[in-house]
Simulated assay, not measured.
Amino acid sequence: MIIDPSDLRRVRRELGITEKELAKLSGVSQSLIAKIELGMVDPSYSKMKAISEAIMRVSGLQGKASDIMTSPVIKVSPDDTVEKAAELFEKHGISQVPVMVEGVAVGSFTERDLIKLVSEKKDVKSAFSLRIRDVMGDILPVVGSEAPIPLVLSLLEHSQAVLVSRMGEIVGIITRADVLKLRKRQ
């Protein structure tokens, strides 16, 4: 992921590093970094890539989706009941499951969906007996196992989970809780 040159100063300051430190880490001159931050130059792709990679290393965001995914994926089928999904939430301490048919994601079901469903029904028992196909939400985003962590994080800002695929097969899931694994990598 390449950082937008107009965001460089803000990002560098948030990380608490000086222009000189960033220059040393990225292999570019301090004067180039200063000029980029002041908007005086339009840096080449290779220079901005080197700077971005250095920032990713400092921030601990270097890596790929497979580094932080959880596997195997706990899932439900469209024919399963809401009761089964609720049991999986409770048994595994999770808050969402992808809905899959023959290894292909076709939707999702979350604790948020469950709460909404139960609150809308007058008869709680009938809510739990519904089929997932009738109440499932949209498909979770899917990334390749080599997708960079910053991409995964940007998807998690808008989705409760991201599925990870390798050669067309879903091999893992990354939830917001998996982001905590980044702490151990610094």
Rank of each mutant, 00 (worst) to 15 (best):
K122N: 08
V152N: 08
I174M: 06
E87L: 06
G137T: 01
M56E: 15
Q30K: 06
E111W: 04
K64S: 09
I132R: 01
I68F: 15
K181P: 05
F89M: 02
S26N: 04
E146Y: 14
G27Y: 01
Q160A: 14
V124F: 11
M100K: 08
G93W: 07
K47S: 07
V101Y: 12
L156N: 05
K35C: 03
G172N: 08
G103T: 03
I55M: 02
D42L: 08
D42T: 03
L130H: 02
A86T: 09
G107R: 02
K122H: 09
T175W: 13
M56Y: 15
E14A: 11
I68Q: 12
V179D: 15
K49A: 04
P150A: 05
F109L: 04
P43A: 00
S31N: 06
S145P: 07
P43M: 03
V171L: 13
K20G: 10
S59T: 10
D7A: 03
D4Y: 13
G16V: 10
P78W: 10
V76A: 02
V73M: 10
V135L: 07
M69P: 05
P150Q: 05
H92V: 01
R131G: 01
H92Y: 14
P141Y: 11
I132M: 05
K125C: 00
S154K: 07
L22F: 09
A34R: 09
I17Y: 07
K122P: 05
S52W: 06
T70R: 11
G144D: 13
S95H: 14
A105C: 09
E120K: 09
E169V: 05
M56I: 07
